[in-house]
Design a binder for these strands. Structure first.
Lengths: 195, 195
DNA sequence: TTTATTTTATGAACAGTGTTCAGTAATTTT
DNA sequence: AAAATTACTGAACACTGTTCATAAAATAAA
């Protein structure tokens, strides 16, 4: 029983790791079942003994990438005082991560979650992730009465919308034309929101 | 010479019209070369005598949908006074159009423009479209000194970012959960921007 | 240890995708 | 009417995700 479970989790891990590797390097469009299976060291048919379809496999990666992104963001936060200042730092690091890995960006913001079972769950993981990263700092702002609770809710929503909008426009519509201008744009929007 | 050109444009039109029809009804994922060609009344191979590949064909549709969207927006503008009020009406109608046609939304905001030749051109058509729709009203605001020129530039940028962000989150991440809440969100954001 | 049973892994096959190309059909020019 | 050019098309290729019967391996029973 226990052994079986361990072996199954290990096998799933091989396929998930292979998928993550391809997503990070080549991106979503280069991903294929045969591709993944070869990197995992198994036949493409074996994959279907552990995942109902490739979409399930792909969205298992979301959980891992969330943690990877969280670690990336936290590594850029040392010495930054909690509150408004750190929210800005979190947002910048968060966006930097997705700019660095366009495949993960596409997975998080572009790819349609057609699966009915886990669609809402996965969407929630993605949509509330930034808010989760900033949770402590919003709490600090609330405690220090920097913003009202209603304000905070509005600002959280604005951050989610603006990061999504800027990332999509920059990554897929080349607007603005370079990364520096993109960061300037983020900072300008943050000035407005956090004032 | 002239006749050849006319015939060629007609043929292109058949394929473009077929593509538009599928995009509006079925969406991007249901689009295929054989699909398009059948609706156009020709073999799939014939398509390649008029377009280098299917991506070129698809992005010819952007021009047509822009005009269709423009007409849709303008039909919802009768009696609305120019300026701030009409900017809000334009944004709402603009977003309504894309919510109505998810396939066109995907084409405008999601699909990667990989083609090197027309990539920048098509991206520009999409990115500056909303600004173009509001141009007259921003001019009115500028003339009436409602906003400074610098403010207007910032607000235009904000509108582009926020409409993109909200549409992506609503259409692909089911956030917020229903259309009414989505419109409320847009209005709240517009309150902030246009104050 | 040998046999029987269950579990796991796999390649062939299917229906779909975009694209290329040789060849046929239609049109235009001579 | 014959020759040359142009337009159209189905077969074929290399992919895609997915299913399934079968072969291989591991486990259980004798």
């Amino acid at each position: 029983m226990d052994k079986k479970e361990l072996q199954e989790q290990r096998m799933k891990g091989y396929f998930i790791d292979a998928t993550k590797e391809i997503l990070k390097s080549e991106g979503l469009k280069s991903l294929s079942v045969r591709n993944i299976a070869e990197k995992a060291g198994y036949s493409f048919a074996t994959l279907y003994n552990y995942f109902p379809d490739v979409k399930h496999l792909v969205f298992y990666c979301v959980r891992d990438f969330r943690e990877e992104c969280r670690a990336y963001v936290q590594s850029r936060l040392e010495g930054v005082t909690k509150g408004k200042k750190r929210i800005r730092a979190i947002v910048l690091a968060y966006m930097e991560y997705f700019v660095q890995y366009p495949g993960i960006f596409e997975l998080f913001f572009i790819e349609k979650l057609s699966d009915i079972d886990h669609q809402k769950e996965t969407a929630g993981l993605i949509v509330h992730f930034l808010q989760e990263l900033c949770e402590e700092d919003w709490a600090v702002c609330a405690a220090k009465k920097v913003y009202t609770d209603v304000d905070i809710q509005l600002k959280q929503s604005q951050l989610s919308i603006i990061t999504t909008g800027i990332l999509v426009l920059y990554m897929h519509r080349n607007t603005p034309g370079n990364y520096k201008a993109c960061i300037s744009l983020v900072n300008a929007q943050m000035d407005q929101i956090l004032n």
